[in-house]
């Protein structure tokens, strides 16, 4: 039982990171469906850098930074140009899905998985540490600082923030970038913690599940993390079920793979989206 819970926690790490990232963007008033892009960017960057430099730490750092760079495209187009955030988010996902194989081919002569990285116990422990730091810092930033309050106002009533001399654009740009960094770290956990290399499209929709968690929890950070954990539980169960010969004989593999998405859907079925969304989210 404990095993399953621990396994659930491990499996949900990427989603948990993405949930934090999605929270910051959404709470500041910008809908964010580009979390997949940040996850994949982080995953690929971490796997490549860790392979090249033999350093997990550098892998994580570069993953976060690369995700932030990608996010700048999003920020510029949505906040300055005024394009629709869903359109740009979709574009960003496409972009990253296309760019990664190209870069991979140039670096590793293949568009498939990157070469394997050696992992060690220390690196694995570091992942948990990074997660802990990320969560605590994010919570503090959002709830205990003036910056966090200003970010919330950006999503609830831009005019009120503007009257204090700070533009919503500023806080939104910062929130999205910070969120992208955290999500990039989550991507790094995908390829260096849950696996030992990057494989194509390995995020498998976690970015969207993270977004669903944010929405489902009413845009509340602690609750969103718990919801993400529950989704992670489903994934862990899925693996358990697949490796269990009795059950996997009766239920086909494809059905089991559907579980996380099906559960998300059913959760949304029972939850009526109240108007808890940030008032001025776009």
């Amino acid at each position: 039982m404990i095993n399953i819970l621990l396994s659930a926690f491990r499996m949900s790490l990427p989603t948990l990171f993405a949930t934090i990232g999605g929270y910051f963007s959404e709470k500041s008033g910008v809908a964010q469906i580009g979390l997949e892009a940040f996850l994949l960017t982080g995953a690929f960057t971490a796997a490549s850098v860790a392979y090249g430099t033999h350093s997990m730490g550098l892998g994580y750092l570069s993953a976060g930074i690369m995700a932030v760079l990608i996010a700048q495209i999003f920020c510029y187009l949505v906040l300055v140009v005024g394009a629709n955030s869903i359109v740009i988010g979709t574009g960003l996902n496409l972009f990253v899905l296309g760019v990664i194989p190209l870069v991979s081919k140039s670096l590793f002569q293949s568009t498939g998985s990157t070469p394997a990285i050696e992992t060690n116990e220390f690196a694995l422990a570091m992942t948990f540490l990074i997660f802990l730091v990320a969560v605590i810092f994010s919570y503090w930033l959002s709830e205990k600082t003036l910056w966090g309050l200003q970010m919330k106002f950006a999503g609830e009533k831009k005019e009120a923030l503007k009257a204090t001399g700070i533009s919503a654009l500023q806080r939104q740009w910062q929130a999205i970038s910070f969120g992208a960094f955290i999500t990039g770290l989550g991507g790094a956990t995908l390829s260096t913690f849950l696996a030992s290399s990057y494989s194509p499209q390995m995020s498998a929709g976690r970015g969207f599940i993270a977004l669903a968690a944010v929405i489902f929890s009413g845009w509340n950070l602690p609750r969103a993390l718990i919801v993400s954990l529950v989704f992670g539980l489903c994934e862990a169960l899925q693996i358990q079920v697949q490796t269990n010969p009795e059950i996997s004989a009766k239920i086909p593999g494809e059905f089991i793979q559907m579980i996380p998405y099906l559960v998300t859907l059913i959760a949304l079925l029972f939850f009526k989206s109240k108007n808890q969304a940030p008032q001025e989210i776009a």
């Binding site: 609830e156 009120a160 204090t164 008032q279």
Partner: peptide, 16 residues
């Protein structure tokens, strides 16, 4: 009014 419905009186005072 430049007031955000979902936030509290305290939030607004802190902001301003």
């Amino acid at each position: 009014f430049l007031l955000a419905e979902n936030l509290t009186v305290l939030d607004h005072l802190i902001l301003n």
